[in-house]
Design a protein around this nucleic acid. Structure first.
Lengths: 213, 213
DNA sequence: TCAATAATAATTGTTAACATTTTACAAAGT
DNA sequence: ACTTTGTAAAATGTTAACAATTATTATTGA
């Protein structure tokens, strides 16, 4: 699943080799699975089993589990392992929602004027992936691309804020798997991308706030 | 510095054994040092050197460095190690400040009515430590207890929110070492604790917001 | 039969060695 | 003198074995 050494001769010539570490790959894979509801919070996630599944040792697995615990996706109990976290209670959810809206409203306002056509293409690409994921009802890919679209705008505004945003967004999406209206997800993000392409700040902020629920 | 196995016979009888892991201890120690300005962001922090200093292997050190990177205290470069992060830019600082105020205003409003006299004593204890730290101008201990006081109220309101709060507060305090008016720190926190002891929500919220700068 | 306790297995915490990547430095070539 | 190239050192990334803790099962006693 996660190959340890990639064949360099097969890479595109001048591509910006990201060379993501095992920890990062595993973190992203597990996050999308948890948000998609693949794991329950009944049974703990065993390090050994995950290590075998990903074909790596327990080290990178532990790193990923610790990171996801800090992010609010998992809950860590000393000497007992990790479980899937429960969604935030109503009051906490409302607070996190307000904070996420404040953040993304700030970020789109900060990056809008610096966006280029290349950014538009990137966003269109993510939107296309999101659409395909919704068509095949692939919850894991849906969660991935939903987050990816928002994260793109946050990163474009500030790398510094990305970590804070992720920990808020992850907690808010802890019950993502309950979402049933898949077509609505696509529609809402289409509105966002359209407003961004028009460089219409007010419309974009309104669309983003409408999507954050 | 960090003993691997503690002598159980010396622990108080029915104390709630926290048994903090090496990772946690090292994380807290390094955070307070970085916030106090002990480290510069010029030279990377070497895992091997830290391992020797704490008397442990590189494993727990790596865990701590990764956690502090996620928290915004350090910056992680793949295969190159970690450095001290730079304080957020003005616009980002204002956003984080607003979010932290929103969080702590929410938290004090949520936990105020549940606070007991035992909580008051805990807060007084932290305040006393903060005062002593200011008297001897121990920036590391000052940062520790400043954070500890706020964290206490956040935890009392919601364990779920603690992680988010920490990542925001850490980023805001990245230039804590520049603070010169030490007596003002004590005064501001005295006002907070006094308002809390009186269970005066409005006054407490006002004092907290005045302290978050 | 049930509760308490001891033995056992399974799991996480930590360590040290190995692998890979990056950096520093010197030598050679233009 | 400057750039390039090759080599060695040092740092991080990963692994597997060991230690300590927790959970499970078996056993003993009333």
């Amino acid at each position: 699943m996660v190959s340890k050494k990639a064949d360099r001769s097969l890479r595109p010539p001048v591509s910006k080799k990201p060379v993501r570490s095992l920890r990062e790959q595993i973190t992203d894979a597990l996050r999308s699975e948890v948000l998609a509801g693949v794991w329950t919070n009944e049974a703990p996630m065993r390090e050994h089993a995950l290590a075998e599944r990903f074909g790596v040792s327990r080290g990178p697995i532990r790193d990923a589990l610790l990171q996801l615990s800090q992010e609010g996706v998992l809950v860590y109990s000393p000497n007992k392992g990790v479980r899937v976290n429960t969604p935030p209670a109503e009051a906490e959810r409302l607070l996190l929602q307000s904070m996420r809206r404040e953040m993304e409203t700030f970020c789109i306002g900060r990056c809008m004027e610096h966006l280029t056509e290349a950014d538009d293409e990137q966003l269109e690409g993510i939107l296309a992936e999101l659409t395909r994921a919704c068509e095949r009802a692939d919850l894991s890919a849906i969660a991935d691309n939903d987050l990816a679209l928002h994260r793109y705008l946050v990163r474009r505004a500030s790398r510094e804020l990305e970590g804070v945003w992720q920990s808020i967004a992850s907690r808010l999406l802890m019950d993502y798997s309950r979402i049933d209206r898949l077509d609505q997800i696509v529609a809402e993000h289409e509105v966002i991308v359209r407003a961004v392409k028009k460089r219409n700040l007010k419309a974009a902020q309104k669309a983003i706030n409408a999507n954050i629920i």
